[in-house]
Write a protein that binds this DNA or RNA. Sequence first.
DNA 1: GAAATTTGACCCTA
DNA 2: TAGGGTCAAATTTC
Length: 279
Amino acid sequence: MKGGNTPHAEAAALSPCGRRAAIQDISRAHELTSQLQAVLLHLPAGSWSQLGQDMAKQILQLTTSALSTLQFCGCGASDDGGTGNCSGELSKSSEGRDGLHGRQTRRKNKTSTKVKTTVPYEDGYQWRKYGQKTINDAMYPRCYYKCTYRDEQGCPATKTVQQQDSYADPPTFMVEYSMKHTCKTPQTIFPVLMVESSPQKASLHGSDSTGSSDLQDLHLSPPSSVVTHSESHDKCSSSNEQEQPCQHEVLITVNTLDELDMESMDLFMGNFDGWFCVE
DNA sequence: GAAATTTGACCCTA
DNA sequence: TAGGGTCAAATTTC
C-alpha cells in the first residue's frame, strides 16, 4: 500500500536538487553517527554508554534506510524515463507464467549498492542464506542472502556476498545490496561503518594490533570497508571534468576499534567530504 | 522440533 | 545457450 507519509512518497516528491541535498545531509548524519558510535565504544561500560550505543544503532539504521530509499527512488531521474516506478519494486513478469508462486524476477534492477568489506555479515540486518552459486571466473562461490523477515514482513531486501581475493588478510568480500529493507526490527548486530568516498583514493591502515582490545570480545569488530556506490549515470561533480564515472573506493582497514583513534578520526574527517556522487 | 543451511534443479535474461 | 538468481527438499544445527 502506498502511504502518503512513506519515505518513498516523500522522496518521489522531492526535486532532484532537494533529493541530492537530502542525501548529502543524511549521509553526513550517518557518518557522524558512525563516529559517535566509535567514540562511545571507548567509554567505560555503563548504562549511559549502552544507551548511547543503542541510540546510535537506531539512528544508523534510520539513516541507512532513508538513504536507501532516496537512492532507490532516484530512478525517476535516470534512464527509465521517469515512469514513477521505483526500481526497488518487484517485477511481476514471471507471476502466473508457470505455476510458480511468487517467484520474483530473475534479474535484479541495475540500481544496487556495492560494499567491499571484511565483515560482510555485520551490517545491522539479519539475513538468511538461500543459495550459493559458483560464478564464472570467480575464485569463490557467491552466496545469496535474503532478509530474515522476508516471509514475516515481506521485506524484499537481498544481498549477495562474494569473497574477492584469497590472499588478502583479512579477506575482502564484495557485498551487493539489492532492494530496500521494509522490515521493522530493532535488532541489529552492528551497523556497517559507512565510509565516505572522495575523488582522491585514501586509506587508513590500522597496522598490527596495537595492544589488547576488549572490543573484539564484544563482537563489535568494526567493519572496514570500502563503499563503492555506483550507478550507471553517475558523474562526479568533484571530479575535474565530470568525465570519470563515479567509482570511488576508500579502504579503511581497522582490526579493532582501538585502532580507530582520534588521529585517524581526524584524518577521516579531513579526507572525505561526501560519498554520494552528484550528477 | 524448529530454525538455519546446503545443494541440486528450475527458470529468466542477455 | 550460458550464466546467474531463486526455489525448495534434504540435511544440519541448536
